[in-house]
Design a protein around this nucleic acid. Structure first.
Lengths: 152, 152
DNA sequence: GCGATACAGAACCAAAAGAGTTCTATTTTC
DNA sequence: GAAAATAGAACTCTTTTGGTTCTGTATCGC
């Protein structure tokens, strides 16, 4: 099964917290742990990765924390996932170089198509912004944004 | 990193062997192991999954083996991957049911979009047939189909 | 009929990756 | 200078994956 790692999932969850709270919101690790229900160390670790990926900026020191590195409409799912999990590639063939070292090179020409598929997936993820994640894309209009309601 | 399991990769590799050899070709496990360079037990295991997924039909007994269950143009990557690895879903939320049991349900409405993304990825994979994998899709026409040439 | 060949299915083991924690350093405020 | 908060790395435990082995069943050929 193709699946996202949990940490990438956490990354997305954390980013949505920022996006919902507004562009200038600043949260500390413990704030976010409390908000999301995740453990402090895990939140800590994930935020660092997001910071390294330039998606968050950090403020050190006593009243420090993290805030969005840029507008929520300028951050895509692809970026978040790459920041946390590393490059997105469904098959490993295209990671190193051309694939000459595949071991089973006799059947490797087949895999030219993988590039196409990898791109398609990447595009799917790059097409969704953080802003869209926060305001689900049921068209554009109003929708009950009331939380706590178990909408199933 | 989002990645395919090795076994799914093997599955695709094995299927391409059938596709290349023609619709009625019948291979035994050991044939395929020799052709692909994979171990016999691993090939064995993978072929069984493909058979269970109705992508291959099996012939038992002495001169038995496996052959394509239908035309190579009617088998998609999605089917192969699902047969070997199970359902394709980039996030786990949509596997069980509605997602009421997410634990972090307060932030779960966000994930409505996952359905969209999962579908996009699935479509990417469903859009590539086994036949296309064998005859790489550089347009439609003639192309040097000569193998052995290390086309890089 | 009997043995050889080949698939069917399940169980099992080891290695690798993922999830999560802990520890030490550095920066900033009060 | 103490407290609060990020930076970074190392480490452990669990789960998953990769791979093997074993037992059973069907078919062919002698």
């Amino acid at each position: 099964m193709i699946r996202l790692t949990k940490q990438a999932d956490y990354g997305i969850l954390l980013m949505t917290q920022f996006a919902r709270a507004g562009a200038s919101a600043l949260f500390s690790t413990s704030d976010l742990a409390a908000r999301t229900g995740l453990s402090v160390p895990m939140v800590n670790k994930t935020l660092k990765l997001l910071q390294r990926g330039k998606l968050l900026t950090s403020v050190r020191g006593v009243n420090g924390g993290y805030q969005l590195g840029r507008g929520a409409n300028a951050i895509t799912l692809e970026e978040i996932i790459e920041a946390v999990d590393g490059p997105i590639a469904i098959t490993e063939c295209h990671e190193h170089t051309g694939g000459a070292e595949c071991g089973i090179s006799a059947s490797c020409p087949t895999r030219v198509n993988w590039g196409v598929i990898n791109n398609a997936i990447r595009d799917s993820l790059a097409g969704v912004t953080l802003l869209q994640m926060v305001h689900p894309l049921f068209g554009t209009g109003r929708m009950r944004s009331r939380e706590g309601r178990q909408a199933v």
